[in-house]
Amino acid sequence: MSHLSGKTIAFLVASEGIERVELTDPWKAVSDAGATPVLLSPKEGEVQTFNHLDKAEKRPVDKTVSSASVDDYDALVLPGGVANPDALRMDQDAVAFVRDFVQSGKVVAAICHAPWTLVEADVVRGKQLTSWPSLQTDIRNAGGEWVDKEVVVDGNLITSRNPDDLPAFNSQLLEAVAHGVAAQ
Rank of each mutant, 00 (worst) to 15 (best):
T8E: 13
A142R: 04
E22P: 03
G17A: 06
N162A: 15
A110Q: 00
K106D: 04
F50T: 12
L129F: 01
A96F: 10
V151P: 00
L129Q: 00
T64E: 07
E145N: 13
V70C: 02
W146N: 08
A56M: 05
V151A: 09
E46K: 14
A83D: 13
N156K: 03
G126V: 01
Q103V: 08
E175H: 07
Q136I: 07
D138S: 15
S66T: 12
D32T: 11
V124Q: 00
S15M: 09
I18Y: 02
V47M: 05
L23A: 09
V30C: 04
F169W: 06
G34W: 09
N141E: 14
S31P: 08
V119L: 03
A75S: 08
L23S: 00
Y73A: 06
Q103F: 07
V124F: 00
W132K: 08
W116R: 09
Q92E: 14
L12K: 06
E22K: 00
E22D: 05
T159E: 02
G17W: 07
A87I: 08
I139P: 05
A68H: 08
S31C: 12
W146C: 10
K58W: 01
A109K: 01
V95R: 05
W27L: 07
A83T: 13
D54M: 13
D154W: 00
G155K: 01
G6Q: 12
L166W: 10
